[in-house]
Amino acid sequence: EDGINLEEIREFAKNFKIRRLSLGLTQTQVGQALTATEGPAYSQSAICRFEKLDITPKSAQKLKPVLEKWLNEAELRNQEGQQNLMEFVG
């Protein structure tokens, strides 16, 4: 629908959760960090719904690039050390 690749979103949601957990981050931490930079659309409950795919494809499509960018950045910081990650997450 609307050129939205559901399979891709499903895959990303699954990987997002795995990668988030491997960084040792909670949904709350991700939500707080993103709410600070991106606004309330990225709250803990939004992250939770995204991971469960309990949102419309359109919403998922909107969240995905922001979550992807944030997660990549978080992983980079983590490679530089846990301290850097925690500063990034705030």
Rank of each mutant, 00 (worst) to 15 (best):
residue 19 R to F: 00
residue 40 P to E: 12
residue 79 Q to H: 12
residue 57 P to E: 15
residue 10 R to S: 06
residue 60 A to V: 03
residue 3 G to V: 10
residue 26 T to N: 05
residue 24 G to A: 02
residue 16 F to E: 07
residue 17 K to Y: 08
residue 59 S to V: 14
residue 47 I to T: 00
residue 7 E to D: 14
residue 33 A to G: 04
residue 32 Q to F: 04
residue 39 G to N: 04
residue 84 N to F: 06
residue 66 V to N: 06
residue 40 P to S: 08
residue 82 Q to T: 10
residue 22 S to C: 11
residue 26 T to E: 03
residue 47 I to W: 02
residue 42 Y to E: 02
residue 59 S to P: 01
residue 29 Q to T: 04
residue 8 E to L: 04
residue 71 L to E: 07
residue 71 L to C: 02
residue 19 R to M: 04
residue 33 A to Q: 12
residue 5 N to V: 09
residue 35 T to C: 14
residue 36 A to K: 10
residue 48 C to W: 04
residue 7 E to T: 01
residue 31 G to L: 02
residue 9 I to F: 10
residue 34 L to P: 07
residue 30 V to M: 08
residue 44 Q to K: 14
residue 45 S to Q: 14
residue 42 Y to C: 06
residue 75 E to V: 03
residue 35 T to S: 10
residue 69 K to Y: 01
residue 16 F to A: 07
residue 74 A to P: 03
residue 73 E to A: 07
residue 71 L to R: 04
residue 79 Q to W: 05
residue 87 E to Y: 00
residue 65 P to N: 06
residue 17 K to V: 02
residue 85 L to C: 14
residue 73 E to Q: 06
residue 58 K to I: 08
residue 31 G to C: 07
residue 42 Y to T: 04
residue 43 S to Y: 07
residue 30 V to Q: 02
residue 76 L to G: 09
residue 35 T to I: 10
residue 19 R to T: 05
residue 41 A to S: 12
residue 10 R to G: 06
residue 70 W to P: 06
residue 90 G to W: 05
residue 25 L to T: 03
residue 26 T to Y: 07
residue 63 L to P: 01
residue 52 K to C: 09
residue 14 K to W: 04
residue 36 A to Y: 06
residue 68 E to G: 02
residue 14 K to A: 06
residue 85 L to K: 15
residue 70 W to A: 06
residue 85 L to A: 11
residue 20 R to N: 00
residue 34 L to R: 02
residue 87 E to P: 10
residue 43 S to P: 06
residue 29 Q to A: 03
residue 7 E to M: 01
residue 31 G to V: 11
residue 54 D to W: 01
residue 25 L to Q: 05
residue 43 S to C: 12
residue 9 I to W: 03
residue 3 G to F: 15
residue 13 A to T: 03
residue 50 F to P: 05
residue 9 I to P: 00
residue 64 K to S: 00
residue 10 R to I: 10
residue 9 I to A: 06
residue 5 N to K: 10
residue 8 E to H: 09
residue 32 Q to C: 10
residue 16 F to I: 06
residue 14 K to C: 04
residue 14 K to L: 04
residue 31 G to D: 07
residue 49 R to V: 00
residue 16 F to D: 02
residue 84 N to T: 09
residue 54 D to K: 09
residue 41 A to E: 15
residue 12 F to S: 05
residue 12 F to R: 00
residue 73 E to F: 09
residue 15 N to G: 03
residue 55 I to R: 03
residue 84 N to S: 15
residue 19 R to N: 00
residue 74 A to Y: 12
residue 60 A to K: 04
residue 13 A to C: 04
residue 66 V to S: 02
residue 15 N to P: 03
residue 60 A to N: 07
residue 1 E to S: 08
residue 56 T to E: 12
residue 90 G to A: 12
residue 80 E to A: 12
residue 66 V to P: 03
residue 48 C to R: 15
residue 13 A to V: 04
residue 57 P to K: 11
residue 27 Q to P: 10
residue 63 L to D: 09
residue 89 V to Y: 05
residue 57 P to V: 07
residue 78 N to K: 09
residue 19 R to Q: 02
residue 36 A to N: 09
residue 3 G to H: 15
residue 77 R to Y: 06
residue 52 K to A: 15
residue 33 A to E: 11
residue 81 G to I: 05
residue 76 L to S: 11
residue 57 P to Q: 03
residue 28 T to Q: 15
residue 75 E to Y: 04
residue 52 K to L: 04
residue 89 V to D: 12
residue 62 K to S: 13
residue 60 A to G: 12
residue 71 L to H: 03
residue 60 A to E: 03
residue 81 G to R: 10
residue 68 E to L: 02
residue 32 Q to R: 13
residue 56 T to R: 06
residue 81 G to Y: 06
residue 67 L to S: 03
residue 80 E to S: 12
residue 51 E to T: 02
residue 25 L to I: 06
residue 10 R to L: 05
residue 36 A to F: 06
residue 23 L to N: 08
residue 22 S to A: 15
residue 86 M to V: 11
residue 23 L to H: 01
residue 53 L to S: 02
residue 50 F to K: 02
residue 16 F to P: 00
